[in-house]
Every structure is written in C-alpha cells, then in structure tokens.
Design a protein around this nucleic acid. Sequence first.
DNA 1: ATCATTTTGTTCTATTTTTCACAATAACAA
DNA 2: TTGTTATTGTGAAAAATAGAACAAAATGAT
Lengths: 208, 208
Amino acid sequence: MITNKNCIIRLSRYKNALYRLQTLGFVKVFSDNLADAVGGTASQVRKDFSIFGISGNKKGGYQIDSLLEKLNSILGKDQLQKVIVVGAGHIGSALMRYRGFEKEGIKIVAGFDIDPAKINRSSPVPVLPLEEVKAFVKSNGIRIAILAVPDIAAQQAADLICVSGIKGILNFAPLGLKAAEGCIINNVNLEIELENLIYFVNVTEKTK
Amino acid sequence: MITNKNCIIRLSRYKNALYRLQTLGFVKVFSDNLADAVGGTASQVRKDFSIFGISGNKKGGYQIDSLLEKLNSILGKDQLQKVIVVGAGHIGSALMRYRGFEKEGIKIVAGFDIDPAKINRSSPVPVLPLEEVKAFVKSNGIRIAILAVPDIAAQQAADLICVSGIKGILNFAPLGLKAAEGCIINNVNLEIELENLIYFVNVTEKTK
DNA sequence: ATCATTTTGTTCTATTTTTCACAATAACAA
DNA sequence: TTGTTATTGTGAAAAATAGAACAAAATGAT
Ligand SMILES: NC(=O)c1ccc[n+]([C@@H]2O[C@H](COP(=O)([O-])OP(=O)(O)OC[C@H]3O[C@@H](n4cnc5c(N)ncnc54)[C@H](O)[C@@H]3O)[C@@H](O)[C@H]2O)c1
Ligand SMILES: NC(=O)c1ccc[n+]([C@@H]2O[C@H](COP(=O)([O-])OP(=O)(O)OC[C@H]3O[C@@H](n4cnc5c(N)ncnc54)[C@H](O)[C@@H]3O)[C@@H](O)[C@H]2O)c1
C-alpha cells in the first residue's frame, strides 16, 4: 500500500494542472509539461503514474481525458464527497460559506454546534445541534468531518464524531488529537504553518 | 543550512508540548517523554536537537526552561512577529478575529482589501485600502503576509506584496503561485488536504 | 522501408530522512 | 570509593524518497 502522503498530494496537483491544461484546449500532455506545471521532475511524474499503473503512449504522452479519469478515480472523486463541519464559529462558518469545494466534488452538507444560538436549520448549509450528529452521520453515510471547535473541546468532539461513524477528520485545533481506532486525523495547524514560514524567512535572510 | 521542513515543524511541536509539560509543573524532560508527547521516536528528538546544537544532561534529560528558550530563539519567537492579511473576505476576517496567534507571539496588525466596503480603520485589526500596503509594510517592517484573496487575484496580489517588501507569504488560494525572487510562498490548500484525507480513508477502508 | 527522433516505463543510483546501537558520562546507591 | 543504572549524543545502518539514465516502443521523415 502507498503510504507516501507527498505522492498523493502530487496526484492532486497533477489533476489540478490537467484541468487547467484542458481548459486551454490541450488534449494530450507529456510528463515534462506536467512536471513544469507543478514544479517537479518528469521522472517523478512518470514514477508516480507507474506506481498507480497509469500508462501513457511512447512518444505520444498521456491523453488528458483518460488521465484525469484515472486520477479522479484514485483520489475518490468519482463520487460526491459529503462532509460535515463540527463547530460553526469563525473558521467553521467561513468554510461552510465557501463555494470552492464544490468544483472539487466536495460538499459540506451540514454544520453542528453546541451553542443554540448557532443553530439554523434553514441556511444553505444547515447548522444542527451537536446531539444530532450521530444520527445524521449514520443516515447520510458521512465519513469525513472538519473539526473547528475550540481547542479545549477538540478531543472530546473528535471522540464523539469517531463513535458516530466518522472515518477521517480534518482538525483545525492547534493540538495533537488522539485518533480513535479506525479514524484518521489530519491537522491544519496555522500557527505552525506561520512559525515555519517565519523560520525559513529568517534563515534565508541571514544566509544572504 | 537546514532545509528539512518536517524537522522545523517538529521543533514547533516540541515547543508546544514543552509548554504543556511546564504548565503541568514539570521542570525537566527526557527525549522519550517528548517523543510520546508529539508522536515520534526518542532518537529523532535527540537528533533534531543535535542538529541545532541543543544539548541536555546525561541521565538528567533536558531543562524545560532553557530548552524552550533555545527552541524559541531558533523559531524566531524571541520577538513579536507582525503579520498582515491581504484579502479581508471570509477566511481573511476569520483570521483577523482569531486571538490564538497572539499566544504564539504572532500579531495580525492590519488587513488590506480592494473593496472599499471592507475598509475599516477603527476595527481592532484595521482594514486598509490595498494601495496603502507598500507604505505600511515599509514603515512597519512587516515581512510576513497571509494571502486570502480570490484565486484569480492571487498571483497579482502576491507580486504586489513581494515588491512591497514582504519576504514570506502564507497563501490560501488553491493554486501554485510563482514566488518573486527573495520571497517564500507556503501554501495552505484545504481542497488538497481534504482530498488527501479522503484518499487515505478510502484505502484504509478497502484494505480492511 | 529504413533511420532519426521523441517520449515512456523502469531500473539503477543518489540523496534525504529515520532509526538503531552503543560508547560516554552523569547520578545515585551501597 | 566502586559499581549500577539511566540517559544523552552521535556515527553507522536502514529505509524511504527522488532523480538520472537508458532501453524499448512509437512516430514521423526521407
Ligand atoms: N479562527 C481562526 O482563524 C483560526 C485559526 C487557526 C486555528 N483556529 C482553530 O480553529 C478552532 C475554531 O476556531 P474559531 O475561531 O472558529 O472558534 P470559535 O469560537 O469562533 O468557534 C468555535 C465554535 O465551536 C462551538 N463549539 C464549542 N464546543 C463545541 C463542541 N463540543 N461541539 C461542537 N461545537 C462546539 C462553539 O459554539 C463555536 O460556535 C479552534 O481550535 C482554533 O484554535 C482558528
Ligand atoms: N473561505 C474558505 O473557507 C476558503 C477555503 C479554502 C480556500 N479558500 C481560498 O481563500 C481565498 C479567499 O477566500 P474567501 O472565501 O475568503 O473569499 P472572499 O471572496 O470572501 O474574500 C476575498 C477578499 O479579497 C478581496 N480582494 C479581491 N481582490 C483583491 C486584491 N487584488 N487585493 C486585495 N484584496 C482583494 C475581496 O474584496 C474580498 O474581500 C480564495 O483563494 C479561496 O479559494 C477559502
């Protein structure tokens, strides 16, 4: 099994680049076009494809249509991915209002909150009481959740949604959560992203 | 020079874990405590420290105080980092309202937008017209910007703030920007984060 | 039909990152 | 003291990742 996260991220980048090329009217693409488009090497592009059994044509490159089909299937984009947001605060509601996920086949179908003031069943993405999360996840077959609750509540909320049937969590709270058995947690830690950026700005400044 | 991004991210994690341990009353820590706290191995903790010339005491572990001092200095946290947000829309204003950066010594000092309706010079974090960004960056010595403008405007806005003196950009637009000479761009691509999570949820589901 | 050219797919090589292993040594106990 | 134990610091080994190189195949030119 593939465990290389970077490799999967590259597949997403290839996919995005291919849509751009397709929009520009291209029908086929060579490994080095794609490498240029995402900032890698041609061999890596071919290696990545070969890992997933994707093949092109000697001298003819890759047919963009069928390449996209294969990448989309690998990335699970052949079906709409329904996602919930837990915690309808600042970040949570920014995400719920964001239309950009839809073009990626990702649809935020509901938010959940413990604060009664946040509940709104009639907004475009309804915000429901947290108590309903289990039933909702079960009856709608949701597997992915975005967790955007305050730090202090994050572990408890993660446990709850795992028990409710969620299999993957994108966590915004800046702390390491313990994942329940059978649930994957990926973190978006903006504090650390900024710290990282600051570090590299500092070192390039010094060495120059 | 260190080019390993993961290593720097681990330093941030150690730092965060050390604050938690300090709060719990701990004074010293061993490499394997830290490894447990951040989910790594003890040798990696020691190796990471050794890369930066951080040393502890045989049999005595590391003094949390002085370890934190060293990590904070490496991570540039011995001075307040002033950051601007470019694009005061959904994501941009969620970030400007977020108080969590302050405890990390990161302060969002202003937002910038082209939409006159978004301008507000008297809010806690003032939102200023984009035309003022260059003067502001220069006179306040800002080096870091968060870019939260629509995709279509992102490259142009990145170019503008680089010319204005910004050295590091945390970009939220889901596309690869070309960095101007002397400017580092790190991307937070939530579409790709979700795609990645979905991929790994799918494969663990299948292989089980 | 033959040859030159282009581009893939894969093997082989290099680099990077992680882990292992253990000598060195500080702390403590007898 | 002397010995025992715990833990660091690091060099060597292993694993993972990336890159280069090139034979094989397809295309098109002559
Ligand atoms: N806002 C940002 O820009 C930002 C940036 C980086 C990280 N974060 C992190 O994202 C998380 C959310 O931040 P925010 O600014 O949106 O906070 P917020 O306070 O605006 O929103 C949190 C929401 O979660 C709800 N909530 C609390 N406990 C809950 C529970 N157990 N179950 C469900 N809902 C619950 C609250 O009622 C509230 O609506 C925090 O962990 C924060 O550290 C936020
Ligand atoms: N909102 C989300 O949850 C979310 C999630 C993932 C990615 N993103 C990305 O983040 C970016 C911002 O998203 P958003 O939802 O906040 O958009 P938004 O439309 O709410 O806000 C964008 C803001 O940028 C301003 N703007 C436009 N051009 C500008 C320019 N040249 N200079 C300065 N300001 C300018 C607009 O006036 C607006 O206020 C987009 O690239 C989007 O794809 C957003």
